[in-house]
Design a protein around this nucleic acid. Structure first.
Length: 263
DNA sequence: ATGGCTCCATACTGGAGA
């Protein structure tokens, strides 16, 4: 089963790119972030015609997350991260699909840092970490996936010194990510490529993609039940080179079907 | 150090992104 994540940076403005990528790569489950669309303007019909069921959590202008599936029903678990009823940003959507709990997330950017936006980011990270601990305690297959807006280590950016004043690379952000993973999650892409520079985002500015001046901020965290089922993964980097493309590229992993029980 | 680009809203400009 192929599971992908893609920060589309506007699901309607990106629709031709999204549909072409779905058609060419046929992922089984897709997590989308930054829909930038209210609930009623999500392009449900186009996605349905491409062969996918969809569950989405929209918001006018900003944020927004969705889960698509062509391998059966999407059973919604929750559409907000617990811990702050005042937080109305559409940044989290959790559902069970084909025996796996998928937590699709769009973690706050946090710039400029320090400041209130960075405080919000750290609070959100804390809430995610608390919820993640509860998910692990279920002892079932879980994936936390999406745009974490966190550069885990120096290996995950083209030029670390140009990110030191950025909320994505602040010591607190790196510590929060490390702390979350240390609960028992597996960073799937880093596990598959322990020593390579892998990027998932390239700035629209400064000719960043042509220079391969990227960062790795879109992640898959696997619960222990899925660690052994991880078979492969990668970044569909070429999509970042298409016309009218997102500043992120799609990222995907391949998960083996669970071993059959004998009777 | 700054700005560069692209999205959205309902605008002829500004906020946000990373």
């Amino acid at each position: 089963m192929k599971i992908a994540t893609y920060n589309v940076n506007g699901v309607n403005g990106r629709l031709p790119v999204l549909l072409r990528w779905l058609e060419e790569t046929k992922p089984d489950i897709v997590c989308l972030q930054e829909l930038k669309s209210p609930y009623e303007k999500f392009p449900f019909n186009a996605i349905k015609n491409a062969g996918y069921l969809a569950l989405w959590h929209g918001q006018k202008s900003w944020n927004g997350v969705a889960i698509l599936s062509r391998v059966g029903e999407i059973h919604e678990v929750r559409r907000a991260l617990p811990g702050d009823p005042e937080d109305l940003h559409s940044r989290y959507l959790e559902a069970e699909v084909n025996g796996v709990i998928i937590g699709c997330l769009y973690l706050p950017n946090g710039n400029p840092a320090p400041g209130p936006k960075f405080d919000y980011k750290l609070k959100w990270f804390k809430r995610l970490t608390a919820h993640a601990r509860k998910l692990l305690a279920l002892e079932v297959p879980v994936i936390l996936v999406g745009d974490f807006n966190a550069i885990p280590t120096e290996m995950d950016c083209h030029k670390p010194e140009s990110w030191v004043k950025d909320a994505l690379f602040f010591p607190e952000t790196r510590a929060a990510y490390k702390n979350l993973v240390a609960q028992g999650w597996t960073d799937a892409i880093r596990k598959l490529y322990p020593k390579e520079k892998i990027f998932t985002f390239w700035d629209y500015f400064r000719n960043a993609f042509a220079r391969d001046a990227g960062i790795r901020i879109d992640h898959f965290l696997l619960s222990p039940q899925l660690k052994k089922r991880l078979q492969g993964g990668g970044v569909d980097k070429y999509v970042r080179g298409w016309e009218k493309t997102s500043d992120h590229a799609p990222v995907w992993i391949e998960i083996k079907e669970p071993s059959q029980k004998r009777r």
